[in-house]
């Protein structure tokens, strides 16, 4: 009797969770449709796009430089630790560059921007929803998706590849300093490894990934904020869900893209 109840509640739980996920997915698709529709219609809010690019890009600059530099340093140390066992310690420049360009740069930039920008977007839009500011925009015959959402998604999507490049460059500077000053690898060997093993395709793959991550994280952040309800607690819940969902989707789409572009 007890096992029957357990089975029934388990199945109900799974069905309800599946239903919630499908509803969420459907909601995001409809939101995406609205974004495409309103973005294609004038007025094109170029000034607002630049304002958001400043927020997403310029104001994230120092954070990206720092995380990039530390990631490059750690990559160089760990890479050397592994490769020196095979007598290939001098290849640390090449492996760090490949890892930063193809994987670490776009993924870690995406995750850092989720934390700094995605959460702020969700909280801001959620707060605007709860204080009727979005209703006020609608009542003034302005499309809130066009005014609030389109500039944020466009700006984040365009800016993330640049941030990823900054991340990669900072990482390489960090790796170079650690490799030459601490690990005493010859600077020429470090640089020639990069030149010999890295191709433009590695950089392109990283940029494509960053572009997609920027789109995903801003779409999710705006969707969650735009539809937030339930006062300040609702905004908090929406922000948490936005960060979690964006991060998971970034890692999932990274796997999919890596498989396709491998």
């Amino acid at each position: 009797m007890r096992s029957d109840n357990f089975l029934e509640s388990s199945i109900t739980g799974i069905l309800e969770t599946t239903q919630d996920w499908l509803a969420e997915f459907g909601g995001i698709l409809m939101f995406l449709g609205s974004f495409i529709y309103w973005t294609s219609k004038p007025p094109y809010r170029v000034r607002e796009i630049f304002r958001q690019m400043d927020f997403v890009g310029v104001q994230s600059g120092m954070l990206i430089v720092m995380t990039g530099a530390f990631t490059g340093m750690v990559s160089a140390l760990q890479g050397y630790n592994g490769m020196s066992r095979y007598g290939a310690g001098s290849l640390v420049g090449a492996t760090t560059a490949l890892a930063l360009a193809r994987e670490l740069g776009p993924v870690l930039t995406g995750l850092m921007v989720v934390g700094r920008v995605g959460s702020a977007m969700t909280a801001e839009l959620g707060s605007m929803r709860n204080t009727q500011q979005i209703d006020a925009i609608s009542s003034m015959a302005v499309a809130p998706i066009q005014y609030l959402v389109s500039p944020r998604i466009i700006a984040t999507t365009l800016t993330l590849p640049f941030l990823s490049v900054v991340f990669g460059f900072s990482g390489m500077v960090g790796a170079y300093i650690i490799s030459t000053e601490y690990l005493h690898i010859d600077a020429g060997a470090f640089m020639s490894g990069i030149k010999d093993y890295m191709t433009p395709n590695d950089v392109t793959q990283g940029l494509i990934k960053a572009f997609v991550f920027g789109f995903i994280l801003s779409l999710v952040a705006c969707f969650k904020g735009y539809n937030a309800s339930g006062g300040s607690r609702g905004v908090g819940v929406a922000t948490t869900k936005s960060v979690v969902l964006s991060s998971v989707l970034i890692l999932f789409s990274d796997y999919v893209m890596t498989t396709i572009m491998f």
């Binding site: 605007m128 204080t131 009727q132 500011q133 209703d135 006020a136 009542s139 003034m140 015959a141 302005v142």
Partner: peptide
């Protein structure tokens, strides 16, 4: 939206845009 252009709405708590100054709020429409 064509009809809404003839509307003015005062919401319960004003629903002012908190990222804009008072002047910019009024100038928005």
């Amino acid at each position: 939206n064509g009809i809404r252009r003839r509307f003015g709405v005062l919401f319960q708590d004003g629903a002012l845009f908190d990222s804009m100054s008072v002047r910019d709020n009024v100038a928005f429409p």
